[in-house]
């Protein structure tokens, strides 16, 4: 049984995640994103970006492992092995680019139990090294009750 006392809490900020140029290229290739600003530094700079830019869903690649770390912590009491992803949203306050150092704070927004399932909404606030907001992601995660 997940511990409802976590609802409303913000977890400790993550260690900074350094966005790698090659990681963005690898991700763009994996999803078939062909835009040159995602793979070519010169094209990205010509378009006004400091380095290659990440496709919109890239943020989940570094927020999901942080979520996994929280959900596998026995303190919360979540059955990670039977979890499915219910929904996902991503809001980008600015593009993510190579060289960004991003810190994520997980907010435990909602927890409910319906129809034999626990439903958990987690929001991740992602900021750069200067503290400016970069992205907000929200995931609805479901596991058997």
């Amino acid at each position: 049984m997940p511990d409802a006392s976590f609802v409303g809490m913000a977890l400790a900020p993550s260690a900074p995640y350094l966005v790698g140029r090659e990681k963005i290229r690898e991700f763009a290739l994996a999803i078939g994103e062909g835009a040159s600003v995602c793979t070519d530094v010169d094209a990205a700079r010509a378009a006004g970006h400091p380095d290659v830019v990440a496709p919109p869903t890239f943020a989940v690649t570094f927020t999901m492992p942080l979520i996994e770390g929280f959900l596998r912590d026995p303190a919360f009491g979540w059955d990670y092995s039977r979890m499915v992803h219910g929904d996902q949203s991503i809001v980008l306050h600015r593009p993510i680019h190579g060289g960004d150092e991003l810190v994520t704070v997980i907010h435990v927004e909602e927890l409910s139990t319906r129809g034999g399932s626990h439903l958990l909404t987690l929001r991740c606030e992602v900021a750069d090294s200067g503290g400016s907001p970069v992205a907000t992601t929200k995931a609805l995660l479901v596991t058997a009750a």
Binding site: V37, P55, P56, D87, Q88, S89, I90, V91, L92, P95
Partner: peptide, 8 residues
Amino acid sequence: PTAVRSFG
């Protein structure tokens, strides 16, 4: 790719 401001 940077034109997409949000996606859910």
